[in-house]
């Protein structure tokens, strides 16, 4: 592997890793707030990707509006499933395990709806970024990858500031740590849970536009990506926000390097080997959380 290859592979791994981080963050936020593993998180990415693409078809929108459409699409659908499906199940005191099975159902339903609306063929994404290479420290790199890393970093930075400094962000953490006491402080836990799903969906939606712009969009693009993001979240320590970010990046790098060094044909399998290895040797992940906490 030449130095140039090394730089290219690292950048590619970081870019795809950022996309995993965005989805893994949502998975971790949801598990913190509700103790539910959200299997339909990958579908929020797919919906975001499709919503972005559709907005481009309709209006030929500039890139940032396509991204906004993806964010809104993912956020709205995520919020809708939470309010209509998961909240109803919680109110009926359905167990967490059964709600998780329901999230698998939601994942399958959303894939089929998407197949009806957008067809079963992969859809080409428009070029959203200037395609020529840019010079960076002596290497010619793809501006698209740079943009993905920068935008993801920005989104995650805003999320951290939101949780640390805003009244609502702090209240959402409180509700995740101790829902009963949060209620005593006047926080509606139903509402903060809905916001958690909305924000998770928005991040997945953004990831969908970014991922689409790298490859293409299709009704089933969220399935494997969602599982990989779950591996990333587990790698970082399920339920840890910082862990999800780091886990995503590490997983993206492992996958991309194994694709380059071994074979792209096996890169998905490598991911699953990583998952099993983590569960065997590091069951709590890199960063752990204690109970229902940050």
């Amino acid at each position: 592997m030449t130095i140039d290859q090394l730089v290219q592979t690292t950048l590619g791994g970081l870019a795809i890793g950022c996309i995993y981080s965005l989805i893994a963050l949502g998975i971790s936020m949801i598990i913190r707030a509700t103790d539910i593993l959200h299997f339909a998180q990958g579908e929020m990415l797919m919906i975001g990707s499709m919503a972005g693409l559709s907005s481009f078809w309709l209006q030929g929108m500039p890139f940032w509006l396509v991204l906004l459409a993806g964010v809104l699409g993912g956020g709205l659908v995520s919020m809708l499933v939470e309010v209509v499906v998961y909240r109803t199940l919680r109110l009926r005191r359905v167990s967490a395990i059964n709600i998780m099975i329901a999230t698998l159902g939601v994942s399958i339903v959303l894939q089929n709806v998407a197949r009806l609306v957008w067809g079963s063929e992969p859809l080409r994404y428009p070029t959203l970024f200037a395609s020529g290479g840019v010079k960076f420290a002596g290497f010619t790199v793809s501006p698209q990858l740079i943009w993905i890393v920068l935008l993801s970093g920005l989104i995650m930075g805003v999320l951290i500031l939101f949780f640390r400094f805003t009244r609502l962000g702090i209240a959402m953490q409180a509700a995740a740590q101790d829902p009963d006491v949060a209620q005593l402080m006047g926080i509606s836990v139903d509402r903060t849970t809905t916001y958690t799903f909305a924000i998770s969906g928005m991040m997945a939606g953004a990831a969908g536009v970014l991922l689409g712009s790298l490859f293409f969009a299709s009704f089933n693009m969220g399935f494997l990506t969602g599982i990989k993001a779950f591996v990333a979240a587990t790698l970082g320590g399920l339920g840890s926000i910082a862990g999800a970010m780091i886990g995503g990046l590490i997983f993206g790098l492992i996958e991309t390097f194994s694709g380059t060094l071994i074979s792209t044909a096996y890169k998905d399998a490598v991911g699953m080997v990583v998952l099993i290895a983590i569960l065997l040797f590091m069951p709590t992940g890199l960063l752990t959380r204690g109970g229902r906490e940050v």
Binding site: R167, I170, Q177, D178, V181, A182, I187, G290, E293, V294
Partner: peptide
């Protein structure tokens, strides 16, 4: 029942929610 993983200041912020 303070919120263990929030800072003292953040706990007070939650009190004023």
């Amino acid at each position: 029942r303070v919120f263990p993983r929030l800072s003292v200041q953040q706990n007070l912020t939650v009190g004023a929610f």
